[in-house]
Design a protein around this nucleic acid. Structure first.
Lengths: 247, 247
DNA sequence: CGGCACTTTGATCGTGGTCAATAAGTGTGG
DNA sequence: CCACACTTATTGACCACGATCAAAGTGCCG
């Protein structure tokens, strides 16, 4: 397991049938991964594709949780806000990830787009109806949730016990790993999150994130070949910080 | 939703049949809540009760995840360790809670007892077999997991954005709420966790936890009527800190 | 070009960590 | 029963990490 997973990690394993969602047009890697063609068609029939601009909201914290979404393209940010305006980024989600499923009446967090992208929306009730018909779907949701839980717990350790430098290193590593799992071979990875987003994710101020990234760059551990890109040139150094191997 | 849930919160709702697990002897509030008598019997037949001493381990992080446990009496602590020996407490679990279920090959965290208690062990494979027979069980597991996820995300916000005082206040509130949900009417609650445990849970040092609790006591917000007990005498003050209402 | 959002860097300050010493429980064996 | 060891808690002194405040600097889009 890697440090500080920015996204749910369970990719198709053995025994997973691969199909294509008619609506989404993309190979199903998320919730629908275990479905066959007929089931995929049925899922697609109940769902609606929507294009979203950068920074637009998919749903807000506290809103009635009536829909679930599959992010089909783009990168999203999950946020939790406090009464006084402080807020935290609790995770990032990539194409293929399921967003907004909860058994609670209201979304416990908000979700918005970091890049422009598309989501596939389905009524929560319809999804729950599909569960009865396709038990594999329910199985899949359990697995996805537990993997997400494990990665959230790693994140917890990072916030509770890592220093600023370690957290930023762990973030960069997990960013790279998430994209590698999704087919980007590197060594350059997309980083559409601003310093502020990263700070809100890691419990740090914008300035500390900026200073730490500058330092990594000065040390030759990373390069920033553009506004929204990062290259990890000395990944092992970052990894050492991220895993807490020595100090 | 309350700040910083120390345990999974989904109690029996409408439509939940109530039975008694023959093996555990206790009313089923956790995973088995939706099962009828026959199903409970079958679950009980596949499970084994074990008594555990204080500080003894239920399972270790990294060990093959072959069993799942229902905590039937006592309080447990979930921990995650790093290579260098640092470790964090990622949650506390109470009687009725499911512990150790994961789709991963190895437990992503360890679990040990804070008090003496008993657990009801079942082979993971058998549980998964039960899923096929009793879809309600699978449904229940999804719900439990998502509620746990939401509470872990709250914890994340607390570690990322709360000051030491706020975190300790949030912890005390959630401790009380967890016990109230389980039938302890208060105003005195059990606190078997040491200052060290609390520190590892909140990302603080022992000294900071001790100082903060001392200050709360001096301010008359709490009382400590014994080694492992706490009474919240001015809950609203703690609540204000915990929710981030004003400063 | 101006306006805006984001980033970088510097200076200063405060929260909370670390180190250290003492106190208060808790358990064990003589 | 007390002596002793051991764990846990408390409190103080000091210091460092990272927040905050402030001010340029850098793209980017209308």
């Amino acid at each position: 397991m890697n440090p500080l997973d920015v996204t749910s990690a369970l990719m198709d394993g053995p025994g997973v049938e691969v199909g294509t969602c008619a609506k989404c047009g993309s190979r199903s890697v998320g919730l629908c991964a275990p479905l066959n063609a007929a089931a995929l068609d049925e899922m697609a029939g109940d769902s609606h594709l929507r294009t979203l601009q950068r920074r637009s909201s998919i749903f807000d914290q506290g809103e009635p949780a009536t829909s679930v979404f599959t992010l089909t393209t783009g990168i999203a940010r999950l946020t939790r806000s406090l009464a006084d305006g402080r807020h935290a980024v609790i995770g990032f989600r990539y194409a293929g990830d399921l967003v907004g499923y909860t058994p609670l009446a209201e979304y416990p967090h908000g979700a918005d787009m970091l890049t422009e992208g598309t989501v596939c929306r389905m009524e929560r009730g319809r999804l729950e109806g599909m569960f009865r018909k396709y038990p594999l779907l329910e199985r899949r949701l359990i697995d996805l949730c537990h993997v997400e839980l494990a990665s959230t717990q790693e994140h917890l350790v990072a916030l509770g016990r890592f220093r600023a430098e370690d957290r930023v290193a762990a973030f960069l590593i997990s960013l790279a790993e998430a994209q590698e799992r999704r087919g980007n071979p590197g060594p350059v990875f997309a980083m559409p999150a601003t310093r502020g987003d990263v700070g809100d994710f890691l419990g740090l101020s914008v300035e500390t994130v900026s200073r730490t990234i500058s330092r990594f760059q000065r040390q030759g551990w990373i390069k920033l070949p553009g506004r929204a890109a990062v290259e990890l040139t000395q990944r092992s150094k970052l990894m050492a910080l991220a895993t807490g191997d020595e100090t």
